[in-house]
Design a protein around this nucleic acid. Structure first.
Lengths: 145, 145
DNA sequence: TAATAGATGAAAATCATTTTCAATTAGGCT
DNA sequence: AGCCTAATTGAAAATGATTTTCATCTATTA
């Protein structure tokens, strides 16, 4: 997702692309891990000084509502964010280093249909995450940075 | 999960089965919905007066670590709990009334193996939840109680 | 029944998140 | 290029959730 696409999407929703938001998007894009608001704030302070934690919260809200980020639930808890690739996908989270790998072929349609038939629920969406250890963390003892 | 089984499991871990914990387990067992600590506290206050919110937090921690409860992530956010039936299972959450239905045949083994092969991750566990509307909420407009 | 490790409740402390508000700025429009 | 306006920002305060502390109490085991 390039800068132009992001700018266009924000504009379409009446949001502005400020330097602070750019910086936040950059930090998230350059990290392989899922980051909490506090993580992002910490990474920003070392470079872009002057940015406020409140701004990070507000930017995350805007970016998530615009479909540019997604949340990770498993592992450390909630409220941690990732850059979102286009389309439906799921996460594979490493509990050693926190790295997140995406995969998209979840093939839950059959299961969804079966569950729908059994329960009568109309299913809107699903949450699927795997938790494990990445190859590097299986080998050595890398800790979360 | 009967009272005796619960008592035994707590004992095995060095925890005690107090009247407060009994009451908390009872509230959770009798609800079809997932309950936050504050929800549980509110339900308890109307009957078992004198119980503290702190005790609810501590009891939830103990019960979850003993495998008697599980968390629900989708929907209202995190930190809401359910009674746990034995064994591996997943949740189907109604976004109308908050009701949670379990299902156990997730059949993710194939997918797990494929993801393992592609990424080299060793997968420990997964999180799978469906969000939708239950039959009653599709018909009428029942709101969360 | 006594001993004791674990549990409780109230208050205070901590941590995360949201609100308020005055000042600033991005983006659209001349 | 410069103006307008609605959106955004940062600091501080407010709120809300969760944890810690500590003195007291109690469930369990001997």
């Amino acid at each position: 997702m390039t800068g132009k696409v992001i700018a266009a999407e924000l504009k379409r929703r009446g949001f502005k692309l400020t330097p602070q938001r750019r910086a936040i998007i950059e930090v998230i894009s350059h990290s392989q891990e899922h980051l909490t608001p506090a993580d992002i704030y910490a990474k920003l302070k070392s470079k872009h000084s002057g940015i406020g934690l409140v701004t990070v919260y507000r930017a995350l809200d805007v970016l998530e509502r615009s479909g540019m980020l997604c949340e990770v639930h498993i592992g450390d808890g909630c409220r941690s964010y990732l850059k979102r690739p286009g389309g439906h996908h799921h996460h594979l989270v490493c509990k050693g280093c926190g790295k997140v790998v995406d995969f998209s072929d979840c093939e839950l349609d059959d299961l969804e249909q079966r569950v729908t038939k059994e329960t009568g629920f109309r299913i809107d969406r699903h949450l699927l995450e795997f938790l494990g250890r990445c190859p590097q963390c299986q080998a050595g003892r890398r800790e979360k940075s």
